[in-house]
Nucleic acid binder design. Sequence first.
DNA 1: CCAAAAGTGTTGCATTTACACCCATGT
DNA 2: ACATGGGTGTAAATGCAACACTTTTGG
Lengths: 231, 231
Amino acid sequence: MNLQSFYEEVPRHLVAVDCIIFGFDESKLKLLVIERKVDPMKGEWSLVGGFVQTGESIDAAAARVLKQTTGLENIFMDQLHCYGEVDRDSGARVIAAAYYALIRIQEHDHQLAEEHGAHWLELHQMPELIFDHSRMIADALKRLRDNARFHPVGFELLPEKFTLSQLRTMYEEIYQETLDKRNFRKKILSMNILEKLEEKDKSTSKKGAHLYRFDKLQYEQLTKKGFVFEI
Amino acid sequence: MNLQSFYEEVPRHLVAVDCIIFGFDESKLKLLVIERKVDPMKGEWSLVGGFVQTGESIDAAAARVLKQTTGLENIFMDQLHCYGEVDRDSGARVIAAAYYALIRIQEHDHQLAEEHGAHWLELHQMPELIFDHSRMIADALKRLRDNARFHPVGFELLPEKFTLSQLRTMYEEIYQETLDKRNFRKKILSMNILEKLEEKDKSTSKKGAHLYRFDKLQYEQLTKKGFVFEI
DNA sequence: CCAAAAGTGTTGCATTTACACCCATGT
DNA sequence: ACATGGGTGTAAATGCAACACTTTTGG
């Protein structure tokens, strides 16, 4: 068998990417889903997705799909899982690599999203989605929870400057449990990975809450010395 | 655009599976690697792999590849990651889903493995492998460590009956750190997920060490009640 | 002046770590 | 009788969870 035939005898497959895009809007964890515009399943709820092109890495395909619907680039995005059941897509045999992304919901291109039929829905009011997309969402949520516990990825969901209340609320949303205000503060501040700003956010109280910024550089320094983030 | 053309316009890809097969041989964590028998890279070290066939799920393809080289079925196997860089395989554009498996090294078909040019190599004397296979191994090891910390997957590497010393040695191998004998015993026994057998293993000491068996059913019961395994 | 969110410490309890000697037995 | 790995308990330190009041200020 020569080199040529070794690869040529092998069947080829459609490969798609699907994106589970998380956003945090004030106090709620939300997902970007679209009304599907193509058959099969036209009009049904779906994740945003697309096919991997020739000469395009699957990571690049996922980034492209994300940009198409949100206008955003250089976003936190991680491969979730590759779904390869033969009949998972009712239109054809499609292997799907799912990616989950954490974006700052405020910063995305609302108009672009609207043009694509995209909607931000809260997690607990998610409708049934096509194919195995509901399963993907369940898997992504589990992954987000696992990941956010030991890595400071949550900050990707918040504006650059945030209050400790916002931060705590975000974690409460992710884990669906209330966190003690004092213990949370103590823990997160003791990590020394937040930069306290002079500015205050007065939008939610008369007194105003200090704004903080995640100090990524400092986090990386500490990590090298053995520090492990944990919520 | 009709349904037919929607899928037909899309490029198709070769999809491979590669298996990172871990085994624990007495006291060492090992990996099954082969001397590649086809071009390109014939004769180089490689993970065992194969192409996803038409009508075959990617999980099934991985299970098939595992069986081909070890003779084993119904093995703990988890998808690691899908590697999709365009140039990762120098022979053609191939998207690879990597799986990692934990097997009881004693139970595999040695002869079959040998026929496939397979060798068990210790982790820290692993040669350079083709393509991105070394990267896959690094990722798999990290995943094994993450997974074994909170899930009782380590038992998949041990014989059905094992001593606490074997169990501890296995974790020491996985994490490359020594564990206190008494504290380890205390912790693992307090979980109530091990069944103590009457039998003793006298192969490593005059006195003989009690054999234990992982009680999977019990573990699942406890898990339902909120128990979380942790080493 | 009052409503509403921000900010602040202490204590008991549980968990984790460190650590050293006796036991059983085959040779 | 002795060498070898198996098996056992306690005390100190650390980390974690529970808990309530004061501060600020815009309206």
